[in-house]
Nucleic acid binder design. Structure first.
Length: 87
DNA sequence: ATAATGACGTGAT
DNA sequence: AATCACGCCATTA
C-alpha cells in the first residue's frame, strides 16, 4: 500500500508546475510547498519519484550546482536542462 | 518514541 | 573554488 503524505503531494504539484526552460532550487520548492526549510526532504521525494510527469530534473541546488538525478545521473540531468535551454 | 538517512542550505575555513 | 561542519525537515529506502 502506498502512503502518500500531504507533503509529498504538494512537492510533486509544485515541481509539475515548473515550466520548460526554468528551474527551482530544492529550498524554493519546499517553501512554495508550504514546508520552509525542508530542502533535504524535497530531495528525498525527488529521489523516490519515478513519475515521468514530474520534471524533477528542473530542481537544482541553491549553490548553483546541478544536484543529482536518479535516471542517468548528473550527466543526463545537465543534458536535459541544456536541451530545454535552462542553462 | 528514537535513531538513521539524504538529489539541501549556509556560513566558516 | 572546494571542503567541512552543522542545522534543518520529512521519511523510514
Amino acid at each position: 500500500m502506498s502512503m502518500k503524505s500531504l507533503f509529498v503531494d504538494r512537492v510533486r504539484k509544485v515541481v509539475r508546475s515548473i515550466p520548460r526552460g526554468k528551474t527551482m532550487t530544492y529550498g524554493q520548492v519546499a517553501r512554495v510547498a508550504g514546508s520552509s526549510g525542508a530542502a533535504r526532504a524535497v530531495g528525498m521525494v525527488m529521489k523516490n519519484n519515478y513519475d515521468p510527469t514530474v520534471p524533477c530534473h528542473r530542481v537544482i541546488r541553491a549553490d548553483g550546482k546541478i544536484g543529482d538525478y536518479n535516471r542517468g545521473g548528473r550527466e543526463r540531468k545537465e543534458q536535459l536542462l541544456t536541451e530545454e535551454g535552462a542553462l
